[in-house]
Design a binder for these strands. Structure first.
Length: 418
RNA sequence: GUGGUCGUAGCUCAGCUGGUAGAGCAUCCGGUUGUGGUCCGGAAUGUCGCGGGUUCGAGCCCCGUCGAUCACCCCA
């Protein structure tokens, strides 16, 4: 047996890159926080039935990509392939839908889909998502989209675009799908494509082949089937986005992978990520809560792919600001002062000052090199002299200047400097 | 899930038509007594993804396998 390796298709983040990952995730979350969303911390596995009913049996996600297993009590458990169903379950279970509306929450964590991996498509991946439940003001739709766009702007992403559409209500969709199927039945298609259309006729809009594309050009468009109310709602969403200065493209042949979407739907597509170009998406879901046994409330939310957004930042050459750099790096001179240095570091940390120490038996030069690499703002050499005098030279690593400090009150002097 | 490409030191890669491995960066040490970033010198490091096979001999050829990756598919 050779060495262990990570399971197929999982992404891992470790220094230095983990800092970039963390920065991306925090930026996404921060955008939700400033818009009034609060944390929802949920399990990564749920009753299999929740996804089957919530996401839809006919979707690829449910029918062939779920990690499903039986627990020791014989229950069928599934690793969450998406976030919305779990949020709905929890909202219903804890009666949040009976309180003040809308319920606005964000979540962040791992999701699981057993697909064939490639860059940007992982079997365990990270999403940050938000949900606004209980009201169907078009302004909330615009807010949700804006939360994502604001985060992208904060990150400095430029090479992407936003697509929006309206999928209408259930009745509309039924009428439309019927006509679309009829249209498709007139086309000369191969077997596998017919099977695909059978499952979800909208899929053909997404086909990459030119001949299919041109065949679908004259297909009926859902937008033409919208009820006056749906159309008005969509107009209001668009005009609010316009007021926000958010640019978008209306894509009236957008296909979403989850069954529960109704009304407003949207996607964020990046241009430098190859085939896995969707960095996020979402939409409104009218019947979902009721479907899961809760009250008949509407909701809207998105899921953003943290892995892909990080990839997008890298593709655009975006520099991640150096966060959390150390305030102080202590270099002990020899064994005799090591204990003192470590204790001093411990005490300073208790004051909230970030400190690290040159561990190992490094010579002074090596210790200073370590101080440099650590990115600490100050370095302090501790030797027998310093312990004897109770004073030391605090070196500013950027300017190279030193100031004399009293070791006993070091925390006070440092707090003034940082 | 289908098809293609790739897999050599920590990282990025070189290795001509098969003769048992190299560079740059990173790491560590040093350039005379206690201060880093430049420069100079030196050192360490690989079961050439793994397992079979062909061959006198394989990193280079064949098969399998694992993983990554590209496209399809799907989607975050």
């Amino acid at each position: 047996m050779s060495k262990f390796q990570a399971p197929k298709g999982v992404s891992e983040y470790f220094p230095e890159r983990s800092r970039h990952f963390e920065f991306v995730r925090e930026t996404l979350i921060q955008s939700a926080r400033v818009s009034g969303y609060e944390l929802m911390e949920l399990p990564v596995f749920e009753d299999t039935e929740l996804f089957a009913r919530g996401v839809g049996e006919s979707t690829d996600v449910v029918s062939k990509e779920m990690y499903t297993f039986e627990d020791r009590g014989g229950r069928s458990i599934t690793l969450r392939p998406e976030g919305t169903a779990g949020v709905m379950r929890s909202v219903i279970e804890h009666n949040l839908d009976r309180g003040q509306l809308p319920v606005k929450v964000w979540y962040s964590g791992q999701f699981f889909r057993a697909e064939r991996p490639q860059a940007g498509r992982y079997r365990q991946f990270y999403q940050v998502g938000i949900e606004a439940i209980g009201l169907n003001d078009p302004e909330i739709d615009a807010e949700v989209i804006a939360v994502a766009v604001m985060a992208f702007e904060k990150l400095g992403l430029k090479d992407y675009h936003t697509e929006i559409t309206s999928l209408g209500d259930a009745v509309t969709r039924e009428r439309y799908t019927k006509d679309l199927r009829e249209y498709i039945s007139t086309l000369a298609l191969d077997e596998s494509t017919i099977a695909r259309a059978e499952l979800n006729p909208l899929r053909l809009f997404d086909d990459k082949r030119d001949e299919i594309r041109s065949m679908m050009e004259k297909a009926p468009v859902l937008m033409d089937y919208l009820t006056p109310e749906s159309a008005a709602h969509f107009e209001e969403v668009k005009s609010t986005l316009d007021q926000f200065g958010i640019t978008y493209q209306v894509n009236n042949r957008m296909v979403r992978g989850l069954d529960y979407y109704t009304g407003t739907a949207f996607e964020f597509v990046h241009h430098k990520l190859g085939a896995q170009s969707g960095i996020g998406g979402g939409g409104r879901y009218d019947g979902l809560m009721r479907q899961l046994g809760g009250s008949d409330l509407s909701g809207i939310g998105f899921g953003l792919g943290v892995d892909r957004i990080l990839l997008a930042c890298e593709a655009e050459g975006i520099e991640v600001p150096q966060e959390n750099s150390l305030a102080l790096f202590i270099v002990p001179m020899g064994e005799s002062v090591k204990g003192f240095a470590v204790l001093k570091a411990h005490q300073l940390r208790a004051h909230g000052i970030s400190v690290d120490v040159a561990y190992g038996d490094r010579a002074l030069k090596g210790g200073m090199k370590a101080a440099d690499k650590s990115g600490a703002r100050f370095a302090l050499v501790l030797g027998d002299d310093e312990i004897a005098s109770g004073k030391g030279e605090l070196k500013n690593m950027q300017t190279g200047d030193s100031v004399s400090v009293t070791l006993r009150t070091l925390h006070e002097e440092l707090l003034k400097l940082i």
